[in-house]
Amino acid sequence: MDIDYSEKVKEHFRNPRNVGTIKDADAVGRVGNPVCGDVMEIQLKIEDNIIKDIKFQTFGCASAIATSSMITEMAKGKTLDEALEITRNDVADELDGLPPIKMHCSNLAADALHSAIEDYMEKQKKGELKLGENEYDV
């Protein structure tokens, strides 16, 4: 492989973890990269505020694929609050660094994860509201 990618980046690019979609996902986060037009989607299965399962799909460069793979590994098993704390720098660090020009790709991964979690939280809120309405109905 070309470019100054670390061995870890190459490894995740060659064998990405948690690829695909989740049937009955509890949340979906899909973000586009304004810089170069790539798209990343992360799906979550959540139980008791813990990320039980996580899957991704990425349309982008090798670094975008590797960062999405890595962030799914990092987020799996974490509580939502913990997962929200994962930053793009954490992902890049975990991959032994990214070339500076490729840092924006790790942004994409962090954004996709955060937007999936926010999606879940939104749904929760709405769900609670519905529950309330029902109670009111009764």
Binding site: I3, R14, G37, C61, A62, I65
Partner: peptide, 21 residues
């Protein structure tokens, strides 16, 4: 870029006009 790096892993050297490259 993903195409190029994957081909490279298979021993093929080519190029792309992708923004990411």
């Amino acid at each position: 870029e993903s195409i190029i790096l994957s081909l490279n892993d298979l021993g093929i050297e080519a190029s792309t006009g992708s923004a990411c490259s």
